[in-house]
Design a protein around this nucleic acid. Sequence first.
DNA 1: ATTCGTTTTTACCATTTGTTAAGTGCGGGC
DNA 2: GCCCGCACTTAACAAATGGTAAAAACGAAT
Lengths: 190, 190
Amino acid sequence: MPNALISFLKLFRDISAGDEALIDAALENRSYKEGEYLFRAGNVCREMYFVANGVLRIMMLNEQGNEITYFFLKENQFCTILNSFNNNVVAHESISAACDVDVLVFTKRALNKLYAQFPYVKQLIDQITQQALLDKIDLKNSYLGNDSTTRYKMFMMRQPDIALRVPLSDIASYLGITPQSLSRIRKNIR
Amino acid sequence: MPNALISFLKLFRDISAGDEALIDAALENRSYKEGEYLFRAGNVCREMYFVANGVLRIMMLNEQGNEITYFFLKENQFCTILNSFNNNVVAHESISAACDVDVLVFTKRALNKLYAQFPYVKQLIDQITQQALLDKIDLKNSYLGNDSTTRYKMFMMRQPDIALRVPLSDIASYLGITPQSLSRIRKNIR
DNA sequence: ATTCGTTTTTACCATTTGTTAAGTGCGGGC
DNA sequence: GCCCGCACTTAACAAATGGTAAAAACGAAT
């Protein structure tokens, strides 16, 4: 039975059984519990994750020690600190599990080897990654200029599956408010 | 004398005089006055701008009729609605001149022709565009989780040249506050 | 130089959000 | 089954921001 990444890639392009085996061999399976870190800010990110099951979050700690959630990534999405991964620069962001999660892991080394073997895989992943980036920006931008109640409603409309699986405090930090404010907003809505 | 774009590209790669002439021929020079629109939301964006002089802004009007500024683009930066430009989908964002501006314009048609002639130009512009995207995201993210006074100070530190050239109301909409609040913040800082 | 229109500043009050602190509820481990 | 810890809720007050409106400053055009 094919892994989640290969099933996903097959939506875009046919992949032979032989290629499939080699792609699969380049991957590592890992599981993380809610709250565990996959990658910590201050290092160069040399892994790329593909979410098979669960939700990841990309986030940062600001000077006051508050967590800021930049993005949520769910099933069939790639997750890495792209700038760090591509350019070998230190990342300011961390990646953690927003709920229990299963991921497939490419190391940069394994991925480069795969790219050399199968240029079409590079094309495919580059294209998917690029489009995902544009979609993420559009999503984040769409929240701007709305009050927090509206942002919460938008979030519930657009990412209900995430809303149901991750802690309230993560959602609050994603929406740019305190957990107490989010709790109050929830109360006032119903 | 070479145009601003060619001078910029030469920072990354040598370009022969012959190529230079053809690239130059593919471009159109335009100037806009502060407040004028280069592109309006609701259409497919089929032009790519390179800022030779001045500042552009990518922005949106929300349902309440408020302007939200997503990004400022200044000299030596490309500006287009990338998702719309790449995928021929209707854009929700507009592009306007944040101050008087001179731009070099590629139509999508001219750019594709150029790409067919000179694959390295495509590589170069794709690479620059991709990195610019990552930088823009990093910049926007870095403002998150700070109060508006801090965001304004960060903006003054990081983009002082823009701060000095564009209307206060544009900066306010970029920082996610009203012009009155920004004016108050300015007063309290000094 | 004057005027007109626009942008920015200022002020006052209403609303929203943050802060602090305490209470409630739920689930895991013993 | 009970206890403990953690996440979430609730509340009261302080602080920040928005809304409205009017004054001041600035620029463009005559």
